[in-house]
Simulated scan of single mutants.
Amino acid sequence: MGERGSSLLAKLILILSFVVVALGSNTVTNLKAFYLVQQWLGSYCNQAGTKCCYPPSGKPSPDFTIDGLWPYSGDGNFAYNCGNDNYDVGRIKFLQDELRKSWPSFTCPQIGRKFWVHEWNKHGTCTKSILGEIPYLQAALNLKNKANIYQALAKAGITPGNKFYSLDVIKKVLARSIGFNPWVRCNKNAQGHDQIWQVTFCADITGKNLVECPYIPSGVDDCESQIQYPIYYQ
């Protein structure tokens, strides 16, 4: 190989090395916590311009459902897109009924199991040395059972409808019932009113036990002091 060929090869190797570093940059090397994000699909579906479709199994009973399980690293970042796996969706058939109930998607058209595979590929692959595919999904389901947001609010008389509730009261009710402070995010409905959308609790690095969140971002979709808790979805 001539001098020019050697130079081109060296440049190619250098470029590839940067690509490898970039692809691996989101991998969690110092996991600090898992963030279990639950959402009220009523607030997602009543946004202006948003269309929702029920899963093939029909309209689920009203509940806060899983949006995702996010790994948070010691360097202060939420890792994502750490590489696609050759995921065999047939492996999760035994969890399908529970996933449909606790982790549904209202997207149109319906994407079924692809939604859970997407969440694994986007977030779960970043910590697959700690939680494999099945344990990752099971951890999210188990944590949701420990952080029953709908039940906690209902016991305090906070129910879906057109009423406005104090954000501080909602946070205090959830902290008292579940034992840890929540991270509450809001969006706006078609009328422009702030409404409860996502509620997040954290788990330790095993994905088994709820803990206080080491970090709660501020300034993103902050809620007003009074927010709506809309009906689930019609």
Score class of each variant (00 low, 15 high):
E3D: 09
R4L: 11
S6F: 11
S6C: 13
L8F: 08
L8S: 07
A10W: 06
I15R: 03
L16V: 13
S17H: 03
V20A: 12
A22G: 06
L23T: 12
G24H: 14
N26G: 15
V28P: 12
N30Y: 14
L31V: 04
L31F: 06
K32L: 14
F34A: 10
Y35T: 00
L36I: 05
V37K: 01
V37R: 04
W40E: 01
S43W: 04
C45A: 06
C45K: 01
N46F: 04
A48E: 11
A48L: 10
A48I: 03
Y54P: 00
Y54R: 03
P55W: 00
P56N: 02
P56Q: 02
G58F: 03
K59D: 02
K59A: 09
P60C: 08
S61A: 15
P62I: 10
D63G: 01
D63L: 06
D67K: 07
P71S: 08
G74Y: 10
D75R: 05
D75M: 05
G76Y: 04
F78H: 13
A79C: 14
A79R: 12
A79S: 15
C82D: 09
Y87Q: 00
G90I: 10
I92T: 12
I92L: 15
L95C: 10
R100T: 12
W103S: 02
C108P: 10
P109E: 03
Q110L: 13
I111V: 15
G112C: 11
G112E: 14
K114N: 15
F115Q: 11
W116V: 07
W116T: 09
W116C: 11
V117A: 14
K122T: 10
G124C: 12
G132I: 05
G132L: 05
E133S: 13
I134N: 04
P135V: 01
Y136N: 02
A140H: 05
N142T: 06
L143F: 01
K146A: 04
K146R: 08
A147K: 01
A154L: 12
A156I: 05
I158R: 12
T159E: 05
P160I: 09
N162V: 08
N162A: 11
K163Q: 10
K163G: 00
F164M: 11
Y165E: 00
Y165L: 01
S166M: 03
L167T: 11
D168F: 08
V169S: 11
I170Y: 00
I170Q: 00
K171M: 07
K171E: 11
V173D: 00
V173G: 01
L174P: 01
A175H: 11
A175C: 07
G179V: 03
F180Y: 15
P182W: 07
N187H: 04
A190C: 09
Q191A: 15
G192H: 07
I196A: 04
T200A: 13
F201Q: 06
D204S: 09
D204H: 08
I205F: 14
T206Y: 11
T206A: 12
G207S: 13
G207Q: 09
N209R: 15
V211F: 07
V211T: 15
E212C: 05
P214E: 05
I216D: 02
S218L: 03
V220T: 13
V220N: 12
D221C: 01
D222L: 02
C223P: 04
E224I: 00
S225W: 02
Q226S: 11
Y229W: 09
I231A: 13
Y233V: 14
